[in-house]
Design a binder for these strands. Structure first.
Length: 110
DNA sequence: ACAATGACATAAG
DNA sequence: GCTTATGCCATTG
């Protein structure tokens, strides 16, 4: 477990239900706008016993970018849709509508 | 400390 | 808009 991982987990854990965040956005919020890739690496190392809404983290294009080793994109999509996140016909998510903005969160959701 | 790896992002074709 | 090529960062051997 590394300090960077803790930061990632801490932030991802705060993502409200029905909202999503891109890897790049997570990295940026941590003060490392260029370490989006490392964010993915951190999530891949997430212990199973940790309660973390990892499915609320998607690619910057609004698409699902996961490693089938841990789970399939199908699973992630199902989880998101279950929270109310809508997918376009091309299997993408409107970031303008569903991306979480920490500044506007009052804590009423989730 | 160096090289390789991967749940990314962006620029080109 | 989609595919391919480069760059970036943190972790690991």
């Amino acid at each position: 477990m590394t300090p960077f991982q803790r930061q990632v987990y801490a932030l991802v854990a705060e993502i409200p239900r029905g909202r999503v965040l891109s890897y790049g956005a997570v990295a940026a919020l941590l003060g490392r706008p260029r370490s989006a890739r490392a964010v993915g690496g951190a999530l891949s190392l997430t212990p199973d016993d940790l309660e973390l809404p990892w499915w609320r983290v998607i690619s910057g294009s609004g698409r699902i970018s996961t490693s089938p080793i841990h789970h399939t994109a199908q699973i992630q999509r199902a989880l998101l849709e279950d929270e109310g996140v809508e997918f376009t016909e091309s299997g993408r998510i409107d970031r303008e509508r569903f991306e979480w903005d920490p500044e506007e969160t009052d804590g009423r959701d989730d």
